[in-house]
Design a binder for these strands. Structure first.
Length: 504
RNA sequence: GCCCUCCUAGCUCAAUUGGCAGAGCAGCUGACUCUUAAUCAGCGGGUUGUAGGUUCGAGUCCUACGGGGGGCACCA
């Protein structure tokens, strides 16, 4: 951490900035219209001249971007300029641009932003190149960019200074543009299927709809504590009561729990509710959303996933929860003594705990990691699903599914419980062995009142956007698909001396 | 919260058993009008995350603290 050397490198660039201003050029640039995306420039069909042939003058192009590489050659310089679509080589000759522009070229650093007008053509070695006729300075980078070959590799720096990661690591930029493509695809598919996008409160007096600990915040004027939402579920279902038959929300939820490669304290979920649907309708929707996303980001249905491969070719199997437990845990779920014995062997407490809670723990311990998927796990034990409609044929079973891929839970959906009396009962009854703060059952009187106005039978769905992005973009950590993952604050850097820099 | 591990120049990385802190890139000076991580010659750049300790001597060993990564726990 040398303040001295950092200042040294910055001082050199600050001096160049001053010299650029001395040339009568604004070192912070201005509006620069009508430049082409570099990818579009590269897509221009310009035939390569044959050996020895004098090349035809190519089309005039205008580009803008960041200087990534510089190869000086006396009175000629080659730059690699990158924008958010591509990179391209720029040729600048002293004779071609004139003395005035050449004075500016001397003051260009890696990381600076420039606009280039020129003609498109090929160099002697056959590289597509913009032969500059004019330069426009668009922004001075006072900070030196990372090493030109390796980019920024330090994980911590990549997360803390994402702006550097994005411009220096094309793969990182590609990932976040891919995430944007996935979100856009979700909106498009939902719209095609007749859903409307809505926004519901993120600050809630009762943080319901999931089993998670909320963040607490405070409203000063009302002098009340509020929770950041852990799910939009209960508000979206109020909209079903109100007659909005197909709604969805793509939004941030906040859960005050651990951080891991699969968990960020704030993450993005899409929740959708469809009146007169059920969980099978939600499975079709889920498959449609994810398959459309795969087509949008490209790469086919058989996709790399770390060292593994995941085959997303639809349709995906739909497997019963208890069948999977039978297979992987090797016990008959109806024989609770056997289940308890198996749970104890797996290190799961059984004493004084609800039967379905023990079964759920055993499922997580023995089945989830083995689910290569994609696979819909369907028909959950009812006691662990307080917001879900029970099967008419068997009230011990809830009409719920979760979608798993390589042990990762990607989606969670129900046929929604719309019986207000049963909902109220389930809100009141805590399961034995579950702490209240960890329970999904939190009394929400207004929600029960809403159900008393008749909520249509419905299917509801939640999909973790971040995890889907991990899987489709092949990133091992959620922090690689969240632009600014939560980090501990660093100790403040000593404030730079203000007085002796003020003239710049 | 617990366990393991990492932190060396702006960036990417070396440094043998505890023995003079190094290289490449970037930067600066100079040469070069078709380069491809351009090349060539020269120069500058460090409180080895922080604070202690052991030692004749610590980047290296020990302790504490800070930050990161992985795992456990919690959760989606």
């Amino acid at each position: 951490m040398s303040e001295e050397s950092r200042d040294g490198l910055e001082a050199v660039r600050a001096e160049k900035l001053r010299k650029i201003a001395d040339l009568g050029i604004d070192p912070w640039g201005h509006r620069f219209d009508d430049h082409k995306a570099i990818a579009a420039v590269r897509a221009i069909d310009l035939p390569k001249p044959a050996e020895g042939e004098t090349p035809e003058p190519g089309p005039a192009v205008r580009i803008a971007g960041r200087i990534m590489l510089r190869r000086g050659q006396g009175k000629v310089v080659f730059l690699e300029v990158r924008d958010w679509t591509e990179r391209i080589q720029v040729f600048i000759g002293k004779k071609q641009v004139g003395d005035q522009a050449w004075a500016l070229v001397d003051l260009l650093d890696l990381g600076d932003l420039i606009g280039v007008d020129g003609t498109l053509g090929y160099t002697k070695t056959g590289e597509l190149t913009v032969f500059a006729t004019a330069l426009t300075f668009l922004g001075k980078s006072l900070a030196p960019p990372p090493e030109k070959w390796h980019g920024l590799t330090d994980q911590e720096e990549r997360y803390r200074r994402r702006y550097v990661d994005l411009y220096s690591n094309p793969e990182s930029l590609r990932t976040f543009l891919g995430r944007s493509t996935i979100v856009r695809t979700f909106r498009k598919v939902m719209e095609e299927r007749g859903f409307v996008e809505v926004e519901t409160p993120t600050m809630q007096a009762i943080a319901g709809g999931a089993a998670a600990r909320p963040f607490v915040t405070h409203h000063n004027t009302l002098d009340i504590d509020l929770f950041l939402r852990i799910a939009p579920e209960l508000y979206l279902k109020r909209l079903l009561v109100g007659g909005m038959e197909r709604v969805f929300e793509i939004g941030r939820v906040y859960r005050n729990e651990g951080i891991s490669p699969k968990h960020n304290p704030e993450f993005t979920m899409m929740e959708a509710y469809q009146a007169y649907g059920d969980y099978h309708a939600m499975m079709d929707l889920t498959e449609g959303l994810i398959c459309a996303s795969i087509e949008a980001v490209g790469g086919g249905f058989v996709r790399p996933w770390g060292e593994k491969t995941v085959d997303f070719t639809p349709p995906w199997p739909r497997r019963c929860y208890l069948d999977l437990l039978r297979e992987h845990a090797g016990v008959d779920p109806d024989d609770y003594e056997a289940v308890k014995a198996r749970a104890k062997a797996a290190g799961i407490a059984t004493e004084g705990r609800d039967r379905d809670v023990v079964i759920s723990d055993l499922f997580e311990a023995t089945v989830e990691d083995a689910l290569a998927g994609p696979v819909f796990v369907i028909d959950y034990p009812a006691a662990i699903c307080p917001l879900t409609k029970r099967k008419a044929s068997d009230p011990r079973v809830a009409e719920r599914f979760e979608l798993f891929v390589d042990g990762i839970e990607l989606a969670n959906a129900y046929t929604e419980l719309n019986d207000p009396y049963l909902q109220e009962d389930l809100f009141r009854s805590q399961l034995a062995g579950q702490k209240e703060e960890d329970s999904m059952a939190k009394m929400d009187d207004d929600f029960v009142q809403a159900l008393k106005n008749a909520m249509p039978p419905a299917g509801g769905l939640g999909i973790g956007i971040d995890r889907l992005c991990m899987l489709l973009l092949n990133k091992a950590s959620i922090r690689d698909v969240v632009l600014f993952p939560l980090m501990r604050p660093q100790a403040a850097r000593p404030a730079a001396a203000v007085d002796d820099e003020s003239e710049i």
